[in-house]
């Protein structure tokens, strides 16, 4: 490139200090990095919610404490659902690489069912807590609890919407390059939610029961 630049300037025309020929970027080449940076920013949102819970988590306002509310068996079941959905999404990725569209769809569907089971158990837990009067308005502990766990649940919900969308896309257009890229983004999103859940069950549930 420097040769071309110097040759042009020698000829007396306008010197060019940048690459002239169009630099070809294949479509979606930077998507994975961009999506990773989005996940990192999402990580900061959760870090703030964890910090809020860490500060307010002990302020019960003479209301119910973690020991009165949490059922660890239910949380263990919930954690199992999310962990299983992580490995089944991994299987979906492996079959996608082998271009087996039927198996990919099957694993995606199983992942979706595990995700749905997770959400169902979480909503049952929330409904049970609210029925007992442990609403988000009851104490600072409960406000921060519902915000943190609810935000995670909302992420899973949108992950499920995305999953169904991609299954329809894959059914209609097949495992095209674009669809593979989208499925890989969702894969990162899904595994990331599992990582956040590790923080939730450790800090909120397990340490809450020890308090």
């Amino acid at each position: 490139m420097s040769v071309a630049t110097s040759r042009i300037s020698v000829q007396g025309s306008e010197p060019v200090f940048h690459v002239i020929d169009e630099h070809d970027h294949p479509e979606g080449a930077s998507t994975m990095l961009g999506f990773w940076i989005y996940l990192m920013s999402d990580c900061l949102i959760f870090a703030m919610l964890f910090a809020t819970y860490g500060v307010l988590g002990g302020n019960y306002a003479a209301g119910p404490a973690p020991k009165d509310l949490f059922d660890l068996k239910l949380v263990a079941l919930n954690t199992t659902m999310l962990l299983l959905s992580s490995i089944t999404y991994g299987f979906a990725m492996l079959t996608m690489e082998k271009s087996k569209i039927g198996q990919t769809q099957l694993w995606l569907a199983i992942t979706g069912l595990f995700g749905l089971a997770f959400l169902g158990i979480e909503l049952t837990e929330f409904a049970h807590m609210i029925h007992e009067g442990a609403t988000p308005q009851r104490s600072a502990f409960l406000s921060s609890f519902f915000t943190l766990v609810g935000t995670h649940g909302l992420h899973v919900t949108f992950g499920l919407v995305w999953l169904v969308t991609l299954m329809v896309q894959t059914a209609r257009f097949g495992l095209t390059t674009a669809n593979r890229r989208r499925l890989m983004c969702l894969s990162m999103f899904w595994h990331f939610l599992d990582v956040v859940w590790i923080g939730v069950f450790t800090f909120v549930y397990l340490l809450g029961m020890l308090r």
Binding site: L72, T79, S86, L210
Partner: peptide, 28 residues
């Protein structure tokens, strides 16, 4: 982005199960 293999997914899953079960067992 790197891709995983069946082996790496299964190793990760096995480790995760142990690392989840042990703390739950300890607290419960």
């Amino acid at each position: 982005a790197a891709h995983g293999s069946l082996k790496s997914y299964l190793i990760g899953f096995g480790l995760s199960v142990i690392l989840t079960a042990v703390p739950f067992w300890l607290v419960m």
